[in-house]
Structure formats: structure tokens, C-alpha cells
Simulated scan of single mutants.
Amino acid sequence: MRGKPVPKDERAEPARADVTIGPRIRRIDRRGCVTQDNIVGMRRVFNVGKHNAGRMAELLVDHGQAVITDLETGEILADQTLDATREYQYRKPTDSVNDAPRQM
């Protein structure tokens, strides 16, 4: 059973892990996620958005900073800090990372 959401002002910073993993090529699944096993002892799931499903991406974790890049275009799909306490890594959208509509 899931707990109630924690109010924004009571949220703690994620537990950061200083881990480095070389580049890995992965296919983005139908949910819009990239999965990598054995990062700090468990599987990690990175959200990059459903509109990216089926694309090939490169996952690089450098000192706890995860960067996911589209192999075809070189576009950065996600750039976030690895949270060592969670399997599912929430993506905090920013204006500069994959927010522009595709119709432009």
C-alpha cells in the first residue's frame, strides 16, 4: 500500500551516491523509461517521456549524475542526480531538456 504524498516543504534531498558507470546503449521502452541493472546494488529506472518510446539512447552515470542522450540526434533526454534510495528515478523537467513540442 502506498503512503500519502509528502508535502513539498517537508521533502528531503535525495540520498546521493558517488557512482560512475560507463556509457550503456539501451532502447527506451513503451513506458518511456530506460532501465539499468546493478547501479548501487539495485535496478534503476529513468523516465525520459513516453514520446521517446522505441528510440535508442545512451545512459551515462558520472559521479551520481545520470545523463541520457538520444543516439540519433544527440539530444539530451534527461540530466538528473541519481537518487540512491529509489528504484524509479523521477525526472524533473527543465526548459532546456526535451520540453519543446515536436511540431516546431
Rank of each mutant, 00 (worst) to 15 (best):
V19A: 03
D37R: 15
K92W: 11
R31N: 14
R27K: 15
A17T: 11
T20Q: 08
N47R: 01
V45A: 13
Y90E: 10
Y88G: 03
R91I: 03
V6A: 09
N98P: 08
D83K: 04
R91V: 03
L77D: 05
I39D: 08
G49R: 02
P93T: 05
P101F: 10
N47M: 05
A17F: 08
T35N: 14
Q80E: 14
L60K: 13
D95K: 14
R55V: 04
G3W: 00
L59C: 00
Q89P: 12
R27H: 09
R43C: 12
P5L: 07
V97G: 03
V61P: 04
Q65W: 07
R2V: 09
P14F: 04
M1D: 12
V34Y: 01
Q65T: 01
E10W: 06
Q89C: 05
Q103G: 04
Q89R: 03
D62R: 09
T81A: 12
D62G: 00
D9F: 09
Q103Y: 11
H51Q: 11
R44T: 01
K92S: 14
M42A: 09
R86A: 06
D95R: 13
Q36I: 07
M42G: 15
N98F: 13
E87Q: 15
R102I: 12
M56H: 10
A17L: 12
K4V: 03
L77T: 02
D79Q: 07
T81K: 13
A17S: 15
A84S: 06
P14K: 01
V48D: 01
A78N: 08
D95Y: 08
F46K: 00
P101T: 07
V40I: 12
T81I: 14
M1F: 08
L60Y: 11
V45Q: 13
P93Q: 02
R30E: 14
D95I: 13
L71Y: 05
T94Y: 06
D62V: 14
V6M: 08
H63C: 00
C33V: 10
M1R: 15
N98Q: 14
G22S: 07
R55Q: 11
